[in-house]
Design a protein around this nucleic acid. Structure first.
Lengths: 85, 85
DNA sequence: TAGATATTTAGACAATTATCTAATTGTATA
DNA sequence: TATACAATTAGATAATTGTCTAAATATCTA
């Protein structure tokens, strides 16, 4: 859970998730929406991947990222759990 | 939203929320559960307060903290929103 | 196979965050 | 009012995190 909350704690990463919910994207396509280097972007994607919030799949020369919807369920459960006695 | 996610990104703070869900507590009572100084604890409580995750109320010599349940609803909505197209 | 493009990895640096001790503020009570 | 206890604030330091450039790896195509 720690990885998950840490991954969500950054604005850029949340914006990446927002983009990916609309459609899967390659790193390059994602990068067009941010004023950061490819290396930094790659680093953010790595954090999202470790948190299992996204899935990556190579497609020839490109790597395509998509949301891993199932993990969002885990977050929701955890937040609900923060409230239940 | 940024404050909120940042507040949740720390293990100690999530544990504080876990404690408060069971019952309201004074700073001293909360502190008994953590191996950190009162000053650090106060800092964490401040972050939780700014994120509106907790509410503080002075009771004479003590300050009593409690969960602000309504904000959890906001988080849930935001997470659901990360999924909706 | 060589050159081009896509992405990641390595290593350095700057910004942010968590922690500490010491000092301060607020309240209770002897 | 003086002392004790509760909590916060100030200022310093160490750890973590986000960013960069340069180098490495993977794939495609001429």
């Amino acid at each position: 859970m720690d990885n998950l909350y840490k991954a969500l704690a950054d604005k850029t990463r949340r914006k990446i998730l927002e983009l990916l919910k609309k459609s899967d994207m390659t790193v390059n396509e994602i990068g067009k929406h941010f004023p950061i280097s490819g290396a930094s972007l790659s680093h953010h994607l790595d954090i999202l991947k470790r948190a299992r919030l996204v899935i990556s799949e190579r497609e020839g020369q490109y790597i395509r990222y998509s949301l891993n919807v199932s993990v969002f369920e885990d977050i929701m459960k955890n937040i609900i759990n923060l409230l239940q006695k």
